[in-house]
Deep mutational scan, measured.
Amino acid sequence: MTTFKLIINGKTLKGEITIEAVDAAEAEKIFKQYANDNGIDGEWTYDDATKTFTVTE
């Protein structure tokens, strides 16, 4: 398992979430479901060097 981080730069929600996932594809699926569940819709980026996803509304 690898640790992945999501940085949320939303209009109403900001913060960071860290999860353990098998790979970046699994982490992205989990993070996008979390964002969808919380009404966050924005532009996604991923930095493989730091294993960090960012979503900006």
Rank of each mutant, 00 (worst) to 15 (best):
A24Q: 12
F53C: 01
I40H: 14
T12P: 15
E20I: 09
G15F: 12
I19G: 13
T3Q: 03
D37L: 11
K51I: 09
G10Q: 08
K11S: 03
N36A: 11
T50Y: 09
G39A: 08
E43N: 12
F53I: 01
K11L: 08
I30T: 08
D47V: 08
L13D: 14
T3L: 07
Y34P: 00
T54F: 01
I17W: 02
W44S: 01
T45Q: 14
I8K: 01
I17H: 12
T3K: 04
T56R: 14
E16G: 04
K11Q: 04
G42L: 03
K11P: 03
L13I: 03
D48F: 08
W44D: 00
Q33M: 14
K51D: 01
M1W: 05
K51V: 09
E43K: 09
V22Y: 03
G39M: 15
D37C: 03
I40G: 01
A49M: 06
T2E: 13
I40K: 05
E57N: 14
L13A: 14
D41M: 05
I40Y: 14
E43T: 13
T56N: 09
T50E: 05
K14R: 04
K5A: 03
T54L: 09
D37F: 14
E57V: 04
Q33Y: 10
N9K: 13
V55H: 02
L13G: 09
D41E: 14
E28I: 13
M1R: 01
Y46M: 06
D23I: 09
T54H: 15
K5E: 02
D37G: 15
E57K: 10
L6H: 00
Y34G: 01
E57L: 11
T3S: 09
T52L: 11
E28D: 07
Y46R: 07
D41L: 09
D47A: 11
I7G: 03
F53M: 15
K29S: 05
T54A: 10
K5G: 04
F4P: 00
F53W: 14
T56V: 14
A25C: 04
K5Q: 07
K5M: 03
N38I: 04
T3E: 09
N9D: 09
K51E: 02
I30F: 15
L6M: 14
K14S: 06
A27I: 02
E57C: 04
E20Y: 04
K14M: 08
T45G: 06
N9G: 10
Y46F: 09
E57A: 04
D37Q: 11
E20T: 05
L6D: 00
N9T: 13
I8H: 13
I7A: 11
E20K: 01
V55K: 00
F4R: 00
T50K: 10
Y46C: 02
I19A: 12
I40W: 11
A35E: 01
T52W: 11
A21Y: 02
V22R: 04
E28K: 06
E28A: 05
Q33V: 13
Y34E: 03
M1Q: 11
D48Q: 09
A27C: 01
A21W: 03
T54D: 05
Q33S: 13
G42Q: 02
T2S: 07
K29A: 05
I7N: 13
T12M: 03
T12I: 10
N36L: 14
G42W: 10
K51F: 08
T45N: 10
D48P: 07
T52Y: 09
N9P: 03
K14G: 09
E20N: 05
T54M: 14
Y34I: 10
